[in-house]
Design a protein around this nucleic acid. Sequence first.
DNA 1: CCCTGATTCGC
DNA 2: GCGAATCAGG
Length: 205
Amino acid sequence: MSWTDERVETLKRMWAEGQSASQIAKELGGVTRNAVIGKVHRLGLSNRVGGKDEEEAEAPAARPEPAPQPAPVAAAPRPEPAPEPVAAAPRPAPEPRPAPAAPVANVTPLPVRKPLVPAGQPLPPQPSANEISPEALASVREVEKRARRLTLMELTERTCKWPIGDPATDDFWFCGLPSLPGKPYCEAHVGVAFQPMSARRDRRR
DNA sequence: CCCTGATTCGC
DNA sequence: GCGAATCAGG
C-alpha cells in the first residue's frame, strides 16, 4: 500500500479528529500504526495543534511567558477550533432530566446540540431489577462505581462496552473496565447481559 | 499487559 | 519517503 492522496487525506482527517495512530492504521488497512506515525511526522503534523492535551497533561504551573496575549479587539469568541468531546468531568449532582411537560413548538434545528436523544422519553431497554439476580445486580452497582467512564471513542475491543446512565444527558458513559476475552463486557456486566433462559423468570410486569 | 506517540535508521 | 524496531511512557 502506498500513500495515495486519498489515504493521506484520510490520515490527516482522522489525526485531526484525535484518532490514535493505531485506529487510523486499522481504518486505512495495509499499514501499521508505525507507518501512520511515521507519515504523520513526515507531514509535519505531529503536534496535534489546536487539539488538546489528554491523559496526564503537564501543568504549566510557572510560565516564563510574560505577555501571552495582547487582547486587542472586543470580545472575541472561542478560538477553540477542535472542541473534541472528551470525557466530561464527573458531575456529582446530575441534573434531573427536564420534565417533558410542554413540547416546545419550535424545532430548533440549530446549534443547540445537547441531547442526541430527545430527553425524557423512551430509554433504551435497561435491565430491570426484577429480572436479574440480586447478586449480579449488586456486583454491577459495585463495579459501576469503579467504572472508567469512557466515552464512545475511547472504547476498544478489550474494554467493557456496557452503557451507564442516560444517553439523553451528559451523565452517560461506558463502563470501560477490562472486558472478558471474547466478550463485549466486563465480568460483572456479562453477568447481567448473558443469562441462562431458565433463570429468566418472566417476572412479567 | 494493554495502550499511546516519538525517534532512529536501513532500505 | 517509507516503516519496523525501538524507545519512553500511561
